[in-house]
Design a protein around this nucleic acid. Structure first.
Lengths: 236, 236
DNA sequence: AAATCAAAATTGGACGACCAATTTTCAAGT
DNA sequence: ACTTGAAAATTGGTCGTCCAATTTTGATTT
C-alpha cells in the first residue's frame, strides 16, 4: 500500500525560485538584459511574476552566488559582465545541478584527485604529514574492524586536497562530494572494505611523505579505478 | 582626494550572515551538533545570536546550498551526514570563497581545461564540430580587428568543455570563470591580443576535429602557459 | 497498559510594512 | 546656461506577523 503511493508522489513540483530563475534567464537570452544592465527593482519583479518579494530575493541570491548577478545595496541588482551565451548554460546547470550523471561525477573526481595528490606530494610540509597520518589512522582504525568508514575515507581524500595547497581544487572537490555520497548510497557502492583499499591508502600516504608525485598519482589512479569501472558498467 | 578615502574604506565589515555561519560552525566542531542532529528552531537561533530571523534563514540557505544542512519544511533543519572534520574546512571556504589566490585559480583552470580538451577530442560529434567552429569564428572575427574579445575567448573554451560531454567538468569551469574574469581585470592581463593565441585557438579546433586528444592537450597546455607564468610572477 | 485520535504547540515558509542609504528631481543661486 | 544642494522618490535590507504543515501532547477508548 505504501509503495504505490510513494511512486505516485514522485512528480516534481517546480518551486517558485526555479520559475523565477528561468524567467530571468529568458530576459537575459532574449537580450532584454545585457551585462552591466540594471535589473528591475525587486518589487516590480515580484509583481510581474506574481510572487512575493521573498522568492525574488532568494532567486537573486542564488544567481549572485554563481556570479551572474551583483547587487549593490540601496541601488539595484546588476548583470555581471560575462557573455550572455555562457549564462544560458550556467543557469540550466543550476537548475539541474542534482542531475549529474554518476559517470561525469566519477570522471571528474578522478581527474581532480590525481592532480591534487601530485601537488600534495610536491608541497607537503611536516605539519601536513602529521595531519595526513592522523586522518589515515582514523580511517584505518574503523576500517580494520570491518566497519564502513565512508566519511573517514572521504576525509582522507579531502586532507590530501588540503595539502595540495590549492584552495580552488579543494573547494571544487567539496562541491561534488555531496553528490558522490548520495550516488554511492543509491548504487550501494563500497559496501565491502577490501584489503586493497586499505593498502592503497597507506601507500598513498607513504608516497606523499616521500615526495613521490608521479608514484602517488599512479596509486591514486589505480585506487579510483574500481569506482571508475563500476561507473562505466552502470552507465545509462 | 578621492584616492585616500577609497583606501581608508577598505576595512571589511563582517556581515551578520558570516557571524552566524561561524557560530554554527562552533556548534558543529565542539560536538554540540552531530550529523543527523536537529538544529534549534530558527526563532531560538535568532534570539540566541541577537539578530533577526532573516539573517539566520539566509545563513541556513547558504549552508544548505553546500550540502551541510538539510531543512525539512515544518519540521526542522538537520545536519547532513558528512564527517565533522570536513565541515570545518568547508565552512571556512565559504567565508573566504572570494579570496582565492590567482595562482590556485589558474592552476585549476589549466587542469580542468587540459582534461576537457582531451575528452572533447575523443567524444566530439559532427554537431559539436559545427558548434566549435561557430564559436571559433565569433572569436576570430572580433580578435582579428584588434578588438578585445575576452567573452568570446572564454566562450570558445566553455564550448570545448561542453563538447567533453562531462557536465560536472563544465559546471566546475563555470564556477571558477567569474573569479578568473575578475582577477583578469584586476591584474590587467590579456590587454593585447597576440597572433599566437589566435593560431592556438585555430589549432585547438583542428585537433579536436581530427580526434587528436594528446595533441589537443599539449596545445591547450601551451596556450595557457602564458597565463600560468604570469600567475607565478605575481604570486604573493 | 496500550492504542488511537484530536487538540494544542511548534516550526519553517511567506507576506507586508518599515528603515536607511542611494539616486533622482528640480528649483534656487551664480 | 551651468552648478549646487536639498527635498522627494526609489531601492535593497530588515523585522514582525501571520500561515499551513508537522510534531507533540494527553485524554479517551479498548
Amino acid at each position: 500500500m505504501k509503495d504505490v503511493l510513494d511512486d505516485l508522489k514522485e512528480v516534481v513540483v517546480e518551486k517558485p525560485v526555479d520559475v523565477i530563475i528561468r524567467q530571468i534567464k529568458e530576459l537575459l537570452i532574449s537580450g532584454q538584459l545585457k551585462p552591466g544592465d540594471k535589473l528591475p527593482p525587486e518589487r516590480k519583479l515580484s509583481e510581474k511574476f506574481g510572487v512575493g518579494r521573498t522568492h525574488v530575493r532568494e532567486a537573486i541570491q542564488k544567481l549572485e552566488f554563481y556570479g551572474i548577478l551583483k547587487t549593490k545595496p540601496q541601488s539595484g541588482t546588476y548583470v555581471a559582465g560575462i557573455g550572455i551565451s555562457a549564462l544560458e548554460g550556467l543557469i540550466s546547470d543550476i537548475l539541474k545541478i542534482d542531475a549529474y550523471s554518476f559517470m561525469s561525477l566519477v570522471e571528474t573526481r578522478v581527474l581532480l584527485e590525481t592532480s591534487a595528490v601530485a601537488l600534495a606530494a610536491e608541497r607537503r610540509t611536516e605539519a601536513d604529514i602529521e595531519k595526513l597520518e592522523l586522518s589515515l589512522n582514523n580511517y584505518l582504525a574503523k576500517a580494520k574492524q570491518g566497519i564502513k568508514a565512508v566519511d573517514e575515507d572521504l576525509m582522507f581524500h579531502l586532507t590530501i586536497a588540503e595539502v595540495s595547497k590549492n584552495q580552488v581544487l579543494k573547494s571544487l572537490l567539496l562541491i561534488i562530494i555531496p553528490d558522490i555520497i548520495s550516488n554511492y548510497s543509491v548504487f550501494k557502492v563500497c559496501d565491502t572494505i577490501t584489503d586493497k583499499a586499505l593498502n592503497e591508502h597507506t601507500l598513498l600516504f607513504q608516497q606523499i611523505k616521500e615526495g613521490d608525485a608521479a608514484g602517488a598519482q599512479a596509486t591514486m589512479k589505480e585506487h579510483l579505478q574500481g569506482v571508475m569501472d563500476f561507473a562505466k558498467m552502470i552507465v545509462q
